[in-house]
């Protein structure tokens, strides 16, 4: 129904991801969202770090950059500063953005630089062998937590909200249509925007924790998802095991590149 070929490097298919991985669903959702924004392929730069999700940039026909572990946001900041007219989209995972690149993530949010971060949250380091990531829930097993994870999980969206992002949303691969709208809004938003996408990792996370195959894990996402509107009427204790989805924050704030260019102009005029 939708022509994905327009945005894909068809010779790179099939995708590297495991059977049942949700990353492909997010990729498709992103392409539909980009199509809705009406931006041309040359106006978009897509930057990724290291990890399963970060392999995405290899399949899409935009200006793409596959960078070092955790530094995708740092590279993207560079692109945005040099070419402020470009739409820069960062594709990253939970380990990439919040463990190794944790500081880049919060400080880009603090600066409110106009980047769109699509963050794939699968609760684990999939590609490197199923190690604990900052979003692995307590008690769950990973290759580096054979007796169950003793740490608490990060709330990635909450972190971005607190650090000063303009737009924060959380979606799941179960509800791909809703995800399209969130990504579209995030791309069009001026300022730092984050879309956290809950996606299953059946190989490294699901199998070790006996959660079933990818299809079952996606169906289970529906049971734990609660919309923001519904969550507002619920008690805090009731929300403990739930995933709150929807647009969590949408505010207008001064954007970094605009402020920087204004300052540059002012100083250049002074020196004349």
């Amino acid at each position: 129904m939708f022509n994905y070929e327009k945005y894909l490097r068809m010779d790179k298919l099939p995708l590297i991801w495991c059977a049942g991985c949700g990353d492909g669903i997010v990729l498709k959702s992103m392409l539909r969202a980009i199509d809705r924004t009406g931006l041309s392929k040359d106006e978009i730069a897509m930057v990724s770090g290291i990890g399963c999700s970060s392999r995405l940039t290899g399949y899409v026909d935009f200006n793409t950059l596959h960078t070092t572990h955790g530094r995708a946001i740092a590279y993207a900041t560079g692109i945005k500063m040099v070419k402020p007219e470009m739409t820069v989209i960062v594709v990253t995972g939970d380990g990439d953005a919040t463990a190794i690149g944790g500081n880049h993530y919060i400080h880009a949010a603090r600066r409110n630089i106009d980047l769109t971060v699509i963050l794939f949250n699968n609760h684990i380091y999939g590609m490197t062998g199923g190690q604990v990531s900052p979003t692995t829930p307590g008690g769950f097993f990973a290759s580096t937590a054979p007796y169950g994870n003793q740490d608490n999980a990060f709330n990635i969206s909450g972190l971005a909200q607190a650090a000063g992002a303009s737009f924060v949303a959380r979606g799941t691969v179960y509800d791909a249509v809703k995800l399209d709208r969130m990504i579209e809004k995030a791309i069009l938003k001026k300022g730092f925007s984050v879309v956290e996408v809950m996606t299953p990792c059946p190989t490294a996370f699901g199998r070790r924790n006996r959660l079933g195959n990818g299809a079952k894990m996606i169906m289970d996402l529906k049971k734990v998802s609660v919309s923001v509107e519904k969550a507002a009427k619920m008690e805090v204790e009731e929300l403990n095991d739930k995933i709150v989805t929807g647009i969590l924050m949408d505010v207008d704030k001064p954007e970094y590149t605009e402020r920087y260019l204004k300052l540059m102009e002012k100083l250049q005029n002074q020196s004349k």
Binding site: M1, L15, G24, I25, K28
Partner: peptide, 17 residues
Amino acid sequence: CGLCELHCPDFAIIVTK
């Protein structure tokens, strides 16, 4: 309805109405 095509992660299903 297109739900299969929408959720296929591998671009492997094309539904034509």
